[in-house]
């Protein structure tokens, strides 16, 4: 799977897609592969105010629990409710239907400091 060029990425294997003053966040294909079959996704409450580095979501596989940290500060305005019944979507379609949350950010420009697709792929091959 290729990494969409319109996204930005973090070294913690999240993707970030800027949509106006909001960003949509998910985990990368690489991350879902490392985690294995995801069986449960715990998402934040709507309106929750997150600081960069706060726990954004918790993903559980059969025998592991992984936190996803907020790559950028902001307010949660949308969560992917469909994941409650179909957590497998994160495995099957991590870059699209498997998104986790949308947060409203104060300074969208922050996103520019994240990795672009080429830099992320380079990072993956060096890891």
């Amino acid at each position: 799977m290729t990494y969409p060029t319109q996204f930005r990425y973090t070294k913690e294997h999240e993707w970030v897609s800027l949509e106006g003053n909001k960003v949509r966040i998910g985990i990368t294909n690489h991350a879902q592969g490392e985690l294995g079959d995801i069986v449960f996704v715990e998402l934040p409450a709507l309106e929750a105010q997150l600081e960069e580095g706060d726990t954004l979501a918790t993903l559980e596989s059969v025998k592991a629990v992984s936190d996803v940290y907020a790559p950028i500060s902001g307010k949660v305005v949308e969560v992917n409710e469909g994941l409650e019944d179909s957590p497998e979507t994160v495995n099957e379609d991590p870059h699209s239907k498997g998104w986790l949350v949308v947060i409203e950010v104060a300074s969208p420009a922050q996103v520019d400091s994240l990795l672009d697709a080429a830099a992320y792929e380079k990072y993956l091959s060096s890891e």
């Binding site: 449960f40 596989s61 059969v62 025998k63 629990v65």
Partner: peptide
């Protein structure tokens, strides 16, 4: 549902 348990979630 073992992710609730100590052998996986440890301190949490």
């Amino acid at each position: 549902s073992q992710t609730r348990e100590q052998h996986i979630r440890r301190g949490r």
